[in-house]
């Protein structure tokens, strides 16, 4: 499963245009400050149905953590290339050759509910 695309070191980086979403300016006045509404919004994005008590607790805890982690901005990071991967590998691919699948039975074995050889899920609210 080796690559036929030759490995090359990162040369001059060419990237495409930045797409879509503009970088909206922070909606909070201060960095390390999260309101209860903010946490509720984030919990919605993360699909976690936090109880009121959990929300209350988390607002305080996250505030403390955020204050601490926000110190990353105090490091001399101006002009530094962000590092997303610890090792400088590129072009790792596999040949386009079919490998055996699990089989429907094994695939569905862990399903909370299955029907007609498919995963049965509760009604979906809206189309994607």
């Amino acid at each position: 499963m080796a690559s036929t695309l030759p490995t090359c070191h990162k040369g001059q980086r060419t990237v495409g245009p930045r797409q879509g979403l503009p970088r909206i300016p922070p909606r909070l006045a201060r960095m390390a400050e999260l309101s209860r509404d903010d946490v509720a919004h984030l919990a919605g994005l993360a699909r976690i149905d936090l109880s009121d008590a959990e929300l209350d607790k988390m607002v305080g805890e996250l505030g403390v953590i955020l204050e601490s982690v926000a110190t990353v901005q105090q490091s001399p990071i101006e002009g530094v290339e962000p590092m997303s991967h610890p090792m400088p590998l590129v072009n790792v691919t596999r040949p386009d050759v079919v490998r055996p699948s699990l089989g429907a039975e094994a695939a569905l074995a862990g399903a909370p509910e299955a029907d007609q050889q498919r995963f049965s899920v509760p009604r979906i609210l809206d189309e994607d």
Binding site: L5, P6, T7, K10, S84, H85, L89, V90, N91, V92
Partner: peptide, 13 residues
């Protein structure tokens, strides 16, 4: 969005 950490960059020569 954030860079997929499980895949390495594609750098076609």
């Amino acid at each position: 969005y954030f860079p997929e950490p499980d895949l390495v960059p594609v750098a076609p020569s």
